[in-house]
Amino acid sequence: MIIDDFLWRAGLGAGLLAAACGPIGCFILWRRMAYVGESVAHMGLLGAAIGLLMGVNALVGTAALAIAAALIMTRASDRTIPAGTFVGIIGHMGLALGFIVLSLMDTVRTDLLGYLFGDVLALSNQDLIAIAAVGIVVLCATAVIWKPLLRSAAGGPIAAAEGRTSALAQTGFLILTAVLVAFGLKVVGALLIVALLIIPPAAARPLAKTPEAMALWAALLGAISAPLGLAASLAVDAPAGPCIVLAAGGLFALSSVYGLIAKR
């Protein structure tokens, strides 16, 4: 059986990206920041639009705006509006504006769905190398800032009161999230990238008794979701990105059932 190159690239690219999303996604889960990830991804679409408009590449624009959005949104504290709502407002404005700008550009009009739901089968060799490099750098960087991040996640206000938080680690975490979002745009799109950040960690939770085990399981389950989703996509001729997300969702359902049985 011959497997086409583009399938290899898609499977490897999506698998590596999802694996890199796992450990960072654990912190998004533990710190209840799913909505921040969502809004950063939405702003990423605007970044892609601006990047294309300015003639640089979409990825650079996405990464720049996603990082800026992540840094600004987590610092926003207005007492009259809940932080989550504020972040949601900014993110959706970004999504709306990004979509409008993209749809006004004739050259990319046909690719609109690709920006929203990814176009993993179109990954080039350069894309794959970039994703692999980013995945490895993100995983290593996560390992470096693991302990201070875990202290903040476990201790919350305690860590802050005792001066045990690291501003560098917090900023690093946000930048890593934004970078994953930017590279995920190509794979599963602006609307689904957060799924790769939160579903594998959630699926990993019932399988783990330590934070480290949960991070490893999340990486593994993310990586498995990619070939599973691609296979499903081939079998029923459905879009690849959404199939990968559904595969992750399937693993989450299985591990939840396991969790329920194991509890008894």
Binding site: L29, K147, R151, A154, P211
Partner: peptide, 16 residues
Amino acid sequence: PDPSLPMTVHRFLDLF
């Protein structure tokens, strides 16, 4: 403590 974070009592103290 957030139930989504698997952490034993001893590990919690160990961390700090």
